[in-house]
C-alpha cells in the first residue's frame, strides 16, 4: 500500500469519487465488514470496476448485480448465494462499497 489516506466517503461509507480508489482502499473498506479479500473477491471487484467504466453506473439493485455477474462470469458465480458468501449483507452494496463505486440506487 502506497498511502494510508482514506479518500472522502459519504455517510454510508461509499467513496465520493470512484477515481480515488486503490487496492489498498478496497482492503481497508473490506476490513470494516470483516471481509478478508481473496482472489474470488478481486475477480468480482475487477468486474464491477470495468462495468462502471463502461456504463457509468453501478448495477442499480442486488438482482441486477447478480444478472450482470452471471452475464460476464457465468452461472457459477452469477448467483446470489455465491455473491452473498463473498460480500455479506446486501452483496451489491457491500461489493460496490469495497470497489469504490457509487451506492446502487435501488438498494434499501
Amino acid at each position: 500500500m502506497v498511502s494510508n489516506v482514506m479518500p472522502e466517503r459519504n455517510n454510508e461509507g461509499f467513496l465520493e469519487d470512484a477515481q480515488e480508489w486503490t487496492e489498498g482502499v478496497a482492503a481497508a473498506i473490506a476490513a470494516e465488514d470483516e471481509v478478508d479479500l481473496s482472489e474470488k473477491h478481486w475477480e468480482i471487484i475487477r468486474f464491477l470496476r470495468s462495468f462502471y467504466k463502461e456504463h457509468e453506473m453501478s448495477p442499480p439493485s442486488n438482482r441486477l448485480f447478480v444478472k450482470a455477474v452471471k452475464e460476464a462470469l457465468g452461472e457459477e458465480k452469477g448467483n446470489s448465494i455465491y455473491l452473498m458468501q463473498l460480500f455479506p449483507g446486501t452483496p451489491a452494496k457491500t461489493a460496490c462499497r469495497i470497489a469504490g463505486l457509487p451506492r446502487p440506487t435501488n438498494c434499501l
Binding site: 463502461e54 453506473m57 448495477p59
Partner: peptide, 15 residues
C-alpha cells in the same frame, strides 16, 4: 452528468 449513451448500453446485460 453521466452519459446516457453509456447507461443505456447496460440495458441488454440487465435483460
Amino acid at each position: 452528468q453521466k452519459t446516457v449513451e453509456k447507461n443505456l448500453s447496460a440495458a441488454p446485460i440487465f435483460g
